[in-house]
Simulated assay, not measured.
Amino acid sequence: MLELKPNFKIMMVGSTEADIEDACQKPDDLGEIIDDLDEIETEEESLENSSIYLAKIQKRIKEYKITELNAPRPDKHLLVLDIDYTLFDHRSPAECGAELMRPYLHEFLTSAYEHYDIVIWSATGMRWIEEKCVCCVTNRDSYKIMFYLDSNAMISVHTRTEVL
């Protein structure tokens, strides 16, 4: 029960049963229905083949220099791992790279190395990648890092589609 003061005004808003039933019916003059998912797929396909982005990729391939730490092994796929939040706890208050390492990192990399060549990637600069990795993950007997990739290896892609 509502406890309202005397002479309190209430506005009631709603729809009649007939209006609700009418709104649930498909209109006769609906027109063509456009599937939004088809538009998104079309845009993604056009991005792949966009001359602007293909040119950016070609430029990166031509100009970006990879410093190979260890040669690729025959019949091994490539596993690219992000440093921050994956291999290292980037938000940790630790003071050195060894304290940033995720638990069982060496065991994970050893296991992964049985099946994959390993590359370490970061959206930061090469200086920070090397700073974190040299003391912790390079020069191990149980696994080898093939090379590092930094932010200079990436390109920017801009779309009109809003990501939800």
Results as ranks from 00 to 15, higher is better:
V13N: 14
M11C: 03
Q25C: 15
Q25T: 08
D38I: 02
I33M: 10
E39A: 11
Q25A: 15
E43P: 01
E45T: 01
E39W: 11
F8E: 04
T16P: 04
N49Y: 08
E48P: 04
S46M: 08
I40N: 09
S15Y: 14
Q25P: 09
T16I: 03
I34L: 11
D35T: 00
D22E: 12
L37D: 05
E17D: 07
E48D: 14
D38W: 06
A23T: 10
D28I: 03
K9I: 04
K26A: 07
E21I: 01
E63K: 12
I20W: 04
D29N: 11
S50F: 02
T42S: 15
K26I: 01
E63Q: 14
I52C: 11
A55M: 05
E45A: 08
L30P: 01
Q25H: 14
G31V: 01
I20M: 12
K9D: 02
P27T: 05
Y53E: 00
F8N: 03
E32K: 13
I61L: 13
I61P: 03
E21N: 10
C24R: 08
D29Y: 10
I34M: 11
D19R: 10
D28F: 07
K56T: 02
E39I: 10
L54Q: 13
E43Q: 06
K62E: 06
C24G: 13
I52E: 13
E63F: 09
Y64D: 05
D28N: 10
A55V: 00
G31K: 01
K65I: 03
R60L: 04
D38T: 01
G31A: 00
Q58L: 11
I34F: 11
E17C: 07
S15E: 06
F8R: 05
E21L: 11
V13S: 13
K59D: 13
L37I: 04
A18T: 02
K56S: 00
D19W: 08
I52P: 04
D35W: 02
E41T: 10
D35H: 03
C24Q: 09
I40E: 09
I66N: 08
E39L: 15
E21Y: 06
V13K: 15
Y53P: 00
L30C: 03
E41M: 15
Y64F: 06
D29Q: 12
C24L: 05
Y53H: 00
I52V: 10
A23P: 09
Y53I: 00
L30W: 03
T16M: 04
G31H: 00
E44Y: 08
K56C: 01
E43N: 07
D36K: 12
Q25S: 15
S15N: 09
A23W: 14
L54P: 00
